[in-house]
Amino acid sequence: MTTLVAQGLVRHFPVRGKRVVQALNGVSFAMEGAVTLAIVGESGCGKSTLGRLVSLLDQPDAGTLHLNGQRIAAPGLAKVQPQVRRAIQTVFQDPWTSLNPRLTLGAILDEPLRLMTGGMNPARRREAVMEMAGHLGFAPEQLNRYPHMFSGGQRQRIAIGRALMLHPAVLVLDEPVSALDVSIQAQILALLLRLQRDYHLLMLFISHDLAVVRHIANQVLVLYLGKVMEVGPAAMVLDQPLHPYTKALQQAAPKLRLGAEPLAPHAPLPGDPPSPLDPPRGCVFHPRCPHTIAICRTEIPQPRLLEGRQVACHRAHEWPTEKEPGESATAPGEPGGGEPDRAADA
């Protein structure tokens, strides 16, 4: 069973004037098995930076990443081993820019095999490409077509298929359905759930869309200005949030208005997130938080275990959620725990 453990990941980008963008500031999580961890937060919170670190496209300034017990990322760690590179694959947001326009579908799916398997014979590569195309719902004659001849949803399927050609253990998906129409988005989510089961994938799903996350993720990690606000089983974090930021995100997500309630209500959070160049002292969320007290301005809240999830808020214990009787709390990062909001066989 695949395990992926991140400990205290830090990534700072130096900018002009000896200043530093603190993109990630000590992010930890642990996952095991064919589960999905969703990373949510506003733009600039460090979601994609975290995705790039896990994809091994970038190196942390501090902290480590372990895959199946093996240290795969740490400051100054030398070149990525080919077998580790194969084990972690990525799907990007925009299928219009992530596919080479001069390669056919067949060549796109074949490329990872050609580059990373060290001389797999062409007949077997051809077989593997055909099999993947079938999995993705493409007919054999479509293998000779170019990316521009496919729709957005089909292109995203190609990008997912390409990522799976090497049978990775971990799939990092950076906003994979944000660029798609809602009817197509549902098709891609259903495909991802099927592939996760077939390939036993551990998925890291980066998204700003809480409804999508609720559908696909077992665990949720809420990032704000490079720090973890709350992490735990999706059902707990999203349905009974303890951190004021998670609550605000949940309230801000547009809901289908089906009753007589008034039009667009007042926004739960004023303003924009502060600049990661100069994050606030104390709790990074305190300038926008409706519950700020003196301690929030001076002391950084340490993550603590509360009601089955880890939460970094000085006041989290003051607003307990209704606990269902007999339910035992699952520690965050523990395998399983928290079923996504869908029928088991979606």
Binding site: D181, V182, Q185, A186, Q187, A190, A211, L256, R342, A346
Partner: peptide, 20 residues
């Protein structure tokens, strides 16, 4: 109805098959 059924966050997701 298909657009509404394809919205995530309400239990079972039902994609609209095919393409526009």
């Amino acid at each position: 109805q298909g657009l509404i059924n394809a919205l995530p966050g309400q239990g079972d997701l039902q994609p609209i098959s095919g393409l526009v």
